[in-house]
Computed example of a mutant assay.
Amino acid sequence: MAGSAPGGAPASIETRLPAEAIKAVPVRHYGRWLSGVIVIALLVALVYAFAQGNVQWHAVPDKLFDNTVVQGAGRTLMITVLAMVLGVVLGVVLAVMRMSKNPVTSGVAWLYIWFFRGTPVYVQLLLWFNLALIFPILNIPFIYKNEMTDVMTPFMCALLGLGLNEAAYMAEICRAGIQSVDEGQAEASHALGMTQSKTMRRVVLPQALRVIIPPTGNEFINMLKTSSLTVAVTYPELLRATSSIGSTSYAVMEMLFVASIWYIAMTSVFSVGQFYLERRYSRGTSRSLAATPWQKVKANMGSLRSLGRVS
């Protein structure tokens, strides 16, 4: 017969046993291991094929930091940065013009974007390079007069060809960023007495940067690689520098490997910077920030250790 607990409540005759801990066994994904082995085998086969090829591998490290190559890489970075600055500034102007209620202004912006997005960069570079065939003399009354061949240097052709083309793409990126800002922001600014230009500068554009900056990083990396097309206008950038060395040393493929290493190194550095820039501007818009490369490595190492313990 059960006794009574203090206060008149009947005492429980059942004994509560602790719940047994659940032993979770990770599922073994044999398909992942099989696909990993296949990929590694293909990579080994590719490396072996190049190792057996007729390649002067000693020329790659010998010429990797050659003075001409390093100077070409520096000119590649310089033309990339300057063309990107020109493209961003002109792209913002074109985006504002494109969204203008003035049909002439928006029409001119649309025509610019239509032309420069519709023609290849290579063709545009050649158009600037051969502009002297149409206009032998550049004559701006009372301001400047000179032969077009002296004005359109390889550097100027590269800057205009890359920068003006990039402006067309940046205009669409900026327009998408501006349109992502709620219209109520601009309406509230106008209600406070702010002009259209001041509203754009102080209210709309700062908020639009969250959308504009990530794809701008992609455009910069793409510009870095597209700059190799300036070899068509004899601009002495990285590809032209390595090609010149390859043609005189009969190491054409080897110098192309050198150029590829430099391009990969530069794009990798800027890709890391782009990752952290995107991560910074994603704060407040996503519940959790993307894992950094080091955090991903630690997580993968932890999963490998757990699989080793299970096996």
Rank of each mutant, 00 (worst) to 15 (best):
A2K: 10
G91N: 12
S303V: 02
I140F: 00
K296H: 10
Y250M: 06
D150E: 15
L34H: 02
S282G: 04
T80M: 02
S311M: 15
G107L: 06
F275W: 06
M194I: 01
I140S: 07
D66I: 02
A45H: 06
G74E: 12
P10I: 04
K296V: 13
P18T: 04
L289W: 03
A241N: 08
A95N: 12
L192K: 07
F65E: 07
P141S: 04
A291Y: 02
K225G: 10
V85T: 15
Q274H: 12
V108W: 09
A186C: 00
A259D: 13
G302H: 07
V25S: 11
E278S: 14
R175K: 09
S197L: 06
N222T: 15
V108D: 01
M156T: 15
S228Y: 10
T292A: 14
S244W: 00
I173P: 08
R210P: 01
I245S: 04
Q124F: 08
K101E: 09
D182G: 12
R283W: 00
P26Q: 13
G74K: 11
T267L: 06
V70A: 11
G72I: 14
T230I: 12
E183N: 08
I38W: 05
V121L: 15
G53W: 04
L304F: 11
E166H: 13
L224C: 10
A299R: 15
A232E: 13
Q52S: 13
M301N: 08
Q274W: 02
T248I: 09
A290H: 12
A191T: 05
Q71T: 05
N300Q: 11
V123R: 08
Y281Q: 11
I40W: 04
S100T: 08
L238G: 10
V258T: 11
V93L: 14
H58D: 13
A109Q: 12
S268P: 04
A41N: 02
V269W: 08
E183P: 01
G91E: 06
A49S: 14
L160Q: 14
L307R: 13
S35G: 04
M97Q: 07
L159I: 14
G193F: 02
S4Y: 03
F275Q: 05
T248A: 00
N102F: 05
P141I: 02
D62C: 00
A241F: 01
A11P: 01
G74N: 11
M223G: 03
G217E: 10
V27Y: 08
S303T: 09
A171V: 12
N54M: 07
V211L: 01
W294E: 10
V181K: 09
L229H: 05
G308E: 01
W262A: 07
Q71E: 14
R240W: 04
Y169W: 07
L209G: 12
E20N: 00
P26K: 14
